[in-house]
Nucleic acid binder design. Structure first.
Lengths: 136, 136
DNA sequence: AAATAGCTCTTGCATTTTGCAATAACTTTG
DNA sequence: CAAAGTTATTGCAAAATGCAAGAGCTATTT
């Protein structure tokens, strides 16, 4: 499997991995919403198509951002969790949320948004701690 | 021009605007590399196609992230600069660069990358100051 | 063991976006 | 006027996306 990177710029390389409209929403679901499985991702409000979802999950797994395991409670089900590499996307996700909450009037500054405005570093620290326990 | 947002999640809304493989590279060129014009963006190492570039510049202008003005030195040339909204993308760009430098071995941790590792907050602060003078 | 239900993944097809090459339209420069 | 520089457009092929249907697998129920 050869990778086609457009350049050796770290930003460009990162965007080669998750620079699309869906990957970071899946990461968000795992990271901030406790979603774990294909069926949960599929029912998120943005309504990702099933073939796109499978494709992105596979890419994120190949890139070692997500890990796929058989569910402990239901052996016909898979659960996805973040690797350390995936958990380290948290600051990116937070900054994107912060910017979006600030500049998109259609997207009310809810929940985390308000909290981030007050204390971004605190929120990141707190969520990092929480993730640390879940990282595979 | 109606906007089609997939949801009212700030992350989703943000990705609706710049969630593609090119927009943030243009932002990077303006923000970190002092590039100003169509022709400069066109010659970046990632080799964006001219039609994509025109499309993204138009979107970024419509979104009030970039401002397009006639060059002072060459009246047949346009120069782009960041608005405050565009300059506020700096933390996102920095975090993406940081992650990319950490996890992509093909993308050597150069220049800013090393500096960010040592003192991310300092780098952001310094670049913010520099941008503040240039924002339109 | 057969039927049912839940979950993941695949397929086919239409639509949209992207990539690439050529070039048009315009302005400044010599 | 000619040449060079700059931005934008067009046509066509390739790739990605959206949507609908359903196949394959496992666990549960009867």
């Amino acid at each position: 499997m050869e990778k086609k990177t457009r350049s050796d710029c770290p930003i460009s390389c990162s965007l080669d991995v998750f620079g699309d409209k869906w990957s970071l929403l899946i990461i968000r679901d795992v990271m901030l919403r406790g979603k774990l499985s294909y069926s949960e991702f599929l029912t998120s409000e943005e309504k990702i198509a099933s073939n796109i979802l499978v494709n992105r999950l596979n890419v994120l797994e190949e890139e070692n951002i997500l890990i796929k395991e058989v569910s402990a409670t239901n052996k016909s089900k898979f659960v996805y969790s973040l690797t350390q590499k995936g958990a380290d996307l948290l600051p990116i996700v937070i900054e994107i949320m912060d910017w979006g909450a600030k500049y998109n009037e259609q997207c009310p500054r809810r929940d985390l948004g308000k909290q981030i405005k007050k204390d971004k570093a605190g929120v990141i620290k707190e969520l990092s701690q929480a993730l640390k326990k879940k990282v595979k």
